[in-house]
Design a protein around this nucleic acid. Structure first.
Length: 599
RNA sequence: GCGCCCAUAGCUCAACCGGAUAGAGCAUCCGCCUUCUAAGCGGACGGUUGCAGGUUCGAGUCCUGCUGGGCGCGCCA
């Protein structure tokens, strides 16, 4: 099944070929002039250039061929050589019925399934998520869903920051604070035999009594600050880190506890945001790969000694800018974050062998990824071009500077969500919506509204640009917002409930009113928006579509009464409304947004 | 200093390999609830697409230069 755009493009292409011109000139796009046409083709203008002929003449030639096409009510040459196409109501109705019968509501699949790994969010042990994690989570989740829905085999990996110096800092800080933990860890450190599973379980349970996520939240910033100030404190943390890396039992056990409590809380928070990962591969998971990897890189002749460190040079002839090398081993003998990234690429090649890895990470890391990717290609850990950095802009406050709280601190993600949720509750009460809902449902609804507000505000912008985060604007819930989209979905649901004919077999859709035409044309444009979002790794194409669809529905809703219409019209319109709802909810789902039943 | 990104309506953002009259939302103003949820719908106002050149029948889009802003530039991640 293909959309009208594609079907008409084929027809126009054939007409160009019949006129002795290249078929790819037949590309059809939605019309810039809805008053004149539904679709247009500008190929005659381009043809005029290459064939040195009059564009109007070519356009007339093409439209003459198209005159017999039963799908077209109008095919005419206009202006300088535009080809204007208007689809017949019957063809539009056919397309609408096709969509109504399609479980995917018009969305096609990719021709060839690939294995795709999406690396996004990147939460850290013991560090609460802040607004900076929001974009990565939102965009990454949507890209993951879009790729999966289009037919690829996709894994989403949280890329958990669970290793390194900060772990040493934290272990030290926790032991300072709790004598119990200190004793437990030191005792375990001295053990020669591994703990049995039952011993492990009871130790974890004991640790849970003494070290909570709140403790970690509180201790980490303190420890990080002391590490900067006090050399002794820093040295101890380094020693603990080294001991952790050699699996010293007590440290390792405590570290596993950190990772556990953090991950449980993070998964809960992510899930509330509609963000779920298939993998929680941590930096620690590739720790064992690093030493052999370094040996192998050395054998491949890629490692170079420089200023006491071991590096891979990645600069190429013709680079505009001289890229720094990848630092594989520091002069102190430790692995750098680029080393871990490289080892992760190797690990993924072995475990999943992805055709493509998408790194949904802040744009500022562009150089870093370029360096790591080049090193990976040199080492043959990935096929040239298989690694792609999907950069996004920073989230700024209304002053245009990176988002900060009023006190100048970093806003925790949970606080942000709670602020949005409370605005949503307030707004629901004001509008006297959801008054009949029980308290639990009311809260769940407010939560959905809040998530929609946050996510849509982000996803309506192209990911590459910075954007201004303005909670007041987002939570006003008027205009182009997530709640608007939910509201339209809820209106359809309410309508269908009232119609009480959800069990009735889908009625034949007919098209007559302008609002009906426009709505069907919008429904038809879904696959294109989805493909664009897929190809460009840019969910905003889909967000834009969802918004236009909601808007189109709202116009239709205002212009075309359903429940009071005569039976044939009523059934047709209800079927159209139902199809719209399905596509709208599908698009929202691909954005990571879900609509309540009532609000 | 070198490099990357950005600059579109008062504000926040779109614009499908270069095409007709550059579109939405907010804000402002005017209309529309005895009928399906007014978080809605219709309408008005609002633009020399940062500046200057160039390529082209045609440029927000491509090229060059400039101005202004953001970011990055090996032993933190």
């Amino acid at each position: 099944m293909s959309d009208l755009k594609k079907g008409l493009s084929d027809a126009v292409a054939a007409a160009f070929v019949a006129a002795g011109l290249p078929g790819d000139l037949g590309r059809v796009t939605p019309s810039d002039r809805p008053d004149l046409a539904d679709f247009q083709c500008n190929g005659a203008l381009a043809a005029a250039k290459i064939a040195r002929r009059d564009p109007r003449e070519i356009a007339s030639l093409v439209t003459a061929t198209l005159a017999n096409d039963p799908r077209l009510a109008v095919a005419e040459a206009a202006g300088l050589g535009f080809i204007n196409l208007r689809v017949s109501d019957a063809a539009l109705a056919d397309r609408a019925n096709e969509l109504a019968a399609d479980p995917r509501v018009g969305a096609t699949r990719v021709d060839k399934t690939r294995r795709i790994l999406v690396d996004y969010a990147g939460p850290n042990v013991a560090k609460p998520m802040h607004v900076g994690h929001l974009r990565a989570s939102i965009i990454g989740e949507s890209i993951k869903r879009i790729y999966r829905f289009r037919g690829d085999e996709v894994l989403g990996d949280a890329h958990f920051g669970d290793w390194g110096y900060q772990m040493g800092l934290l272990i030290g800080a926790v032991m300072d604070e709790s004598l119990f933990v200190k004793d437990l860890v030191e005792q375990t450190n001295r053990r020669v035999s591994p703990l049995s599973p039952t011993e492990e379980a009871s130790t974890f349970s004991a640790l849970s009594q003494h070290v909570s996520l709140e403790d970690l939240d509180r201790l980490y910033p303190m420890a990080a600050a002391r590490g900067k100030e006090e050399p002794d404190y820093r040295d101890r943390a380094r020693k603990i880190t080294a001991a952790l890396q050699t699996r010293t039992r007590g440290y390792h056990l405590l570290w596993r506890h950190f990772a556990r409590v953090t991950r449980v809380a993070l998964e809960r928070d992510f899930h509330a945001l509609g963000v779920d990962f298939d993998l929680w591969k941590g930096e620690s998971d590739v720790e064992d790969l690093i030493a052999p990897m370094v040996r192998e890189l050395d054998e491949k002749g890629l490692l170079v000694s420089d200023q006491g460190a071991r590096i891979i040079r990645v600069a190429r002839q013709g680079d505009k800018k001289e890229l720094p090398p990848l630092l594989v081993v520091s002069s102190e003998g430790s692995a750098m974050y680029g080393t871990t990234d490289l080892a992760t690429i190797l690990d993924r090649k072995r475990s999943f062998n992805p055709h493509q890895v998408l790194y949904v990470v802040d744009q500022r890391q562009a150089d870093h990824f370029e360096i790591v990717f080049r090193a990976a290609y040199l080492a043959d850990y990935a096929q040239d071009g298989a690694l792609e950095h999907i950069g996004f802009g920073t989230m700024n406050g209304t002053d245009g500077k990176p988002f900060k709280t009023r006190e100048g601190g970093v806003l925790k993600l949970n606080d942000l969500i709670e602020m949005t949720r409370s605005k949503a509750r307030e707004r629901l009460r004001e509008a006297d919506l959801g008054a009949e809902l029980d308290p639990d449902t009311f809260d769940a609804t407010a939560h959905k509204v809040a998530v929609a507000a946050l996510k849509f505000a982000d996803l309506q912008n192209f990911r590459g640009t910075n954007y201004v985060f303005d909670l007041d604007r987002f939570s006003s819930f008027e205009g182009k917002t997530g709640p608007y989209l939910l509201y339209q979905a809820v209106r359809v649901k309410s309508l269908l409930r009232k119609a009480e004919d959800t069990s009735q077999p889908a009625a034949r859709i007919t098209v007559g009113e302008p609002a009906e035409r426009d709505l069907v044309l919008l429904l038809d444009a879904f696959d294109h928006a989805l493909s664009e979002a897929y190809d460009k790794k840019a969910p905003h194409f889909l967000a834009e579509h969802a918004y236009k669809l909601a808007q189109g529905f709202s116009r239709f809703y205002a212009a075309c009464p359903m429940l009071s219409a005569e039976p044939g019209i009523r059934a047709s319109r209800l079927s159209l409304a139902r199809t719209t709802l399905r596509q709208l909810e599908l698009a929202l789902d691909l954005l990571g947004i879900s609509a309540p039943d009532r609000m």
